[in-house]
Nucleic acid binder design. Structure first.
Lengths: 159, 159
DNA sequence: GGGCTTCTTGCGACTCATTTGCAAAAAGCC
DNA sequence: GGCTTTTTGCAAATGAGTCGCAAGAAGCCC
């Protein structure tokens, strides 16, 4: 079975980005927020990132363009971007949070290689999880707002 | 639909513990490990815990019996117990790991209340996740070793 | 019980992600 | 340009988790 099954959609590495830095910046400007050099640089770094990035990684990247950026600014900006639904936080259990662009129309999960720490995306059929969440709601009187589903293992390169 | 469905087994709050502190201690002794006062106290605390506990929480609990315990000991002991398949680690995204007894015959997930931080358990039908892992293996050349699946939302008391 | 070996523990210092308060700097707007 | 409000930098603090090492306890044999 070499072709992707109907219930598991492979995200090709060269999938077109569906939100560019300019679009995101414009949306923020429209909402009345200021567009500073650092905000701009962070959004660009995040748009260009091939994998979820951590705050320390972003600090290093942004420092190359704006050598005086402070880590506090990076953290505050990450919170700001997450509050504005531009970023989502993910946790690969290595002691720090990572961030990636939030694509409003598609929600995916990750394959984390425990050897090289590489992170791939997988799209999991959502009706299954939704059905499950519905059952949880009924049997546990619990209103599910979100979930975390990540897979850990060994990627092709490391196996 | 008031009765639990076939695919979602509710774990009642008063479910009998299937591993007592004595059994766990005996198993460790049989494997040749020493049973120290702190090891004993930690196992008891974990057996009696109604929810997954963090290292700082355990430190506080154990301190009440052994006021001189050091946090380093707590962390080392948690690693030891996890290595010996007595504990499993869980992550509710609040910045620290939590631990609970590992029940070899049943694997479950959690419902984390984002308001009061209460954690309930849910057993999720495993064949679904296994089927998914099999597909991931084929389509991504990725050998899945473990996964994390946790649900976040609002519990009955907080709604 | 005494002594021995090895496993555990306490201590102190350290790392590192993340947070806080405050005053200075920059953005957007008139 | 000047004003108001948002952002930023800095310095210091917090808090989880880790490390090296020497002292303390468990289990064991006599």
């Amino acid at each position: 079975m070499k072709t992707p099954s109907k219930t598991l959609i492979v995200l090709p590495d060269d999938a077109p980005e569906n939100s560019s830095a300019e679009q995101l910046v414009d949306a923020l400007r429209t909402k009345g927020f200021r567009i500073t050099k650092i905000r701009q640089a962070m959004i660009e770094a995040l748009v260009n990132a091939s994998q979820p990035v951590s705050a320390p990684q972003l600090l290093e990247q942004v420092s190359q363009i704006h050598p005086s950026v402070n880590k506090t600014t990076i953290y505050r900006e990450l919170d700001f971007l997450a509050d504005n639904k531009i970023l989502s936080e993910i946790d690969i259990l290595d002691g720090m949070k990572r961030y990636e662009l939030l694509h409003p129309d598609h929600h995916h999960h990750h394959l984390v290689c425990t050897s090289c720490k590489d992170i791939q995306c997988v799209e999991v059929p959502h009706h299954d999880l939704h059905a499950l969440e519905g059952k949880i709601q009924q049997t546990h009187d619990f209103t599910v707002q979100s979930h975390v589903l990540e897979f850990f293992g060994i990627c092709r390169k490391c196996s």
